[in-house]
Design a protein around this nucleic acid. Structure first.
Length: 725
DNA sequence: AGCACGCCGACT
DNA sequence: GTCGGCGTGCTC
């Protein structure tokens, strides 16, 4: 053997053979799955005596590197090189060069040590671990298993998922010892869980060490955070850990306060993005080390390394903050589901409203409904009244002031008793086409996708691109379409002028108010930014319902209902005079569900409809986007499951210059297309794995960087695309 | 992305 | 015979 490789390549097979045969021999040896190679030292390096092989996950998100690589463990790293630690390894191309008896491959990159082994099944010589970054075992087998499941579900790489799951290291945070763990607390009392039909039983099950799974429709009002805290306390009492994922920092603060109230100080950790990196890592480490057994946080907390987890809880899973922005864009609900399945722990998914996914979990029998009786609901909810088009047409005052008489009355009455909430939609909703007569959404005859008006006025499907030349409404036979127009927040300003004696407060995304006092005031807010009023609002006015329902989105109805309910849940119960006025057509399904306060019934009906039309979440969808050629080439190579159906591709809107680009959107000025792939229930994982291997093959061929490299042939793959019309 | 290997043409 | 262009494939 020449010095080229230091100590030999594929075992003794090629010793003394002419050089031109070596490559052949190496090739045939590889194909014949060479006998297991003992790790070999590079000249002079002593190896660990026990388990001298380290299996390493290299921290590169690219799909064709989504597997383990074996490295030799030098004797001096033996003690620290334990499973789960962060390591650095040389990772590079070709056979490398040899200098001073050591091989130098590519540069140093980060990775995680996954396992120590006696031997490697790699036939070549192993490079040595370059460094153990720290002896802290940050990657437990459970976390790795979860990351793998999430990567599979979303056709992404484990390294990408771990980037979301394991915070960056801070040496200072690591050196600081975590506090000593406290013994389990007492079993909490039932508290306001008694208002739910099986509330007490659910808590008892958690406290006894069982793993109940429930979809919880929370009663309106402020009690939800304390109810979550009691569920956590019951789980801790069983000697297990618990995890709560909520949509935003305000909700974290509420649950934090409730946990402190129920458990006292020091028993729970907060994992939020806005804490600095060092604090965040310190809290995370306290959880991993078992010093703290309960966690509440925003979406990244879905991966929190809670020891022996007994409960994962998700609050308000319909909020789109639960959807991770970074690859592979997992959703907190689905990660929690994977986690509950993997760890066989309890599961609680709750909100004032109910998503179709929630209804599906109940319908499939995987989770039990946790609901209050109708009578209890009536006791807790405000009175809801509607103002529809007919009312508006009859109402001359409304046309003059752009606000119906009933709304004026409700505001005037409310302001005598306390604060009044006015919910106005945010700008930027895209109008959808609907029947001008009955307002049923206009859908494609072929695939049931949403019809959109092109610039020339021609109608075409937003999913499959098919042109629709002769639309008529399947509901009422009408043939005229209308584009729904988005209203303005000007209405709210007018309201303020109409009640000059009353203070007006605004709460919008950029500047959110947390709470307002219980004194009379007009509180103008966009959805999701509603402040909590002390003692509850006396009334709420939900304006421009059409804007919310008119979005060209599968979830428009569900979302509108969720936002209305989120505002109305802050209003006093009907018995205390609480009134809600919603300006929307009373015949519409989400409006009726609000009036009857029946979000679960709404979700169940939506679910049935989605099943019938082949929509998610009953079927699963993936989006493939890129240049037209790239999408076509990708769809040509991918070996989709037999049942898969490809819709499109259709052109994507061009990203305006200067606007920050959303993941998967075309770079400014480029013309991209998007295809949707849909599979029936049960074929989701087959779809993900097909897309993943096709993507890996294309990347390996130097197609492009996928992540950021954006070569012309790269495509974006997104499982569960959020905006499918 | 980077980097080495190898096949093929041009030049000594 | 040997140098080096670039196309292809691998990274323990």
């Amino acid at each position: 053997m020449s010095s080229e490789n230091g100590q030999g390549g594929g075992g003794g097979a090629g010793e003394g053979a002419p050089p031109e045969q070596l490559a052949l021999i190496r090739e045939s040896v590889r194909q014949a799955k060479a006998p297991r190679a003992k790790p070999r030292t590079w000249r002079g390096a002593a190896l660990a005596e026990e388990l001298p092989v380290a299996r390493v996950l290299v921290d590169k998100g690219v799909l064709h590197l989504d597997r383990y690589f074996d490295y030799a463990v030098p004797a001096e790293l033996d003690a620290d090189a334990q499973p789960g630690v962060r390591v650095r390894v040389r990772f590079g191309a070709g056979r490398g060069r040899v200098r001073d008896g050591r091989r130098e491959g590519g540069g140093l990159i980060d990775g995680f040590l996954v396992e120590r082994l006696a031997e490697s099944d790699y036939s070549g010589p192993l490079a040595a671990l370059a460094q153990v970054v720290s002896p802290e075992p940050v990657l437990s087998p459970e976390l790795l298993g979860l990351a793998r499941a999430v990567a599979d579900r979303y056709a992404g790489s484990v390294a990408d998922v771990l980037q979301l799951a394991v915070p960056p290291r801070s040496a200072r945070a690591e050196q600081r010892p975590s506090p000593a763990p406290l013994p389990p607390p007492e079993v909490p009392d039932t508290g306001s869980w008694a208002r739910y039909e099986h509330g007490g039983a659910f808590l008892e099950a958690l406290a006894s060490g069982a793993s109940p799974r429930a979809v919880w429709n929370a009663l309106p009002g402020p009690e939800w955070s304390e109810e979550l805290a009691r569920a956590v306390a019951a789980t801790l009492a069983s000697g297990r850990g618990a995890l709560v994922v909520v949509p935003d920092g305000r909700a974290v603060a509420r649950v934090d306060a409730a946990l402190t109230g129920v458990l006292g100080e020091g028993r729970h950790a907060l994992l939020t993005a806005d804490a600095g990196p060092e604090k965040r890592y310190r809290e995370w480490l306290a959880v991993r080390r078992g010093a703290v057994r309960a966690v509440v946080g925003t979406r990244a907390a879905m991966f929190a390394p809670v020891r022996d987890v007994g409960l994962v809880a998700v609050w308000d899973d319909g909020d789109d903050s639960h959807s991770e922005q970074h690859a592979p864009q997992p959703h907190a609900r689905d990660v929690s589901l994977l986690r509950a399945a993997q760890d066989k722990c309890g599961f609680l998914m709750g909100g004032w409203s109910c998503t179709v996914e929630g209804a599906q979990l109940v319908e499939s029998g995987w989770a039990r409904p946790l609901v209050a009786s109708r009578e209890q609901v009536r006791r807790s909810a405000p009175l809801v009244r509607t103002v529809g088009d007919q009312d508006l047409a009859r109402d001359e005052a409304a046309r003059a002031a752009r606000l119906p008489t009933l709304a004026w009355q409700a505001v005037r009455e409310g302001l005598r008793q306390g604060p009044v909430l006015v919910q106005v939609p945010r700008r930027g909703y895209v109008p959808r086409m609907a029947c001008a007569n009955c307002r049923a959404p206009a859908r494609c005859r072929q695939c049931s996708g949403p019809l959109e008006a092109r610039d020339g006025g021609a109608l075409s499907c937003g999913w499959c691109g098919r042109e629709e030349g002769a639309w008529h409404c399947p509901e009422c036979g009408g043939f005229r379409l209308r584009a729904q127009v988005v209203g303005a927040r000007r209405t709210a300003e007018e309201l303020g002028r109409a009640f000059p004696a009353v203070p007006v407060r605004t709460s919008v995304r950029e500047h959110v108010l947390d709470t307002v006092p219980g004194t009379p005031a007009l509180v103008v807010s966009t959805p999701g930014a509603e402040p909590v009023a002390e003692g509850g609002y006396a009334a709420a006015l939900l304006l421009d319902g059409w804007a919310m329902l008119a979005r060209p989105d599968l979830r428009a109805g569900e979302d509108a209902l969720r936002r209305w309910i989120a505002a109305a849940a802050l209003v006093r119960p009907q018995g205390d005079g609480g009134t809600v006025v919603v300006v929307a057509e009373p015949t519409l399904r989400p409006v009726q569900a609000l009036v009857r306060w029946d979000p679960v019934g709404h979700a169940v009906r939506e679910l049935a409809e989605r099943a019938e039309l082949g929509f998610p979440p009953v079927s699963r969808m993936a989006a493939v986007s890129g240049t037209g050629e790239a999408v076509a080439a990708f769809l040509g190579t991918v070996e989709l499951p037999r049942e898969a159906e490809v819709l499109g591709p259709v052109p994507l809107p061009v990203t305006p210059a200067g606007r920050p680009r959303r993941p998967g959107a075309p770079p400014p000025g480029e013309h991209w297309e998007r295809a949707l792939v849909r599979v029936p229930p049960g074929k989701g994982s087959a779809l993900a794995s097909a897309l993943k291997s096709a993507q890996a093959a294309r990347m390996a061929r130097g197609g492009g960087g996928g992540g950021g490299g954006a070569a012309a042939s790269a495509v974006w793959v997104r499982i569960d695309p959020p905006d499918i019309g």
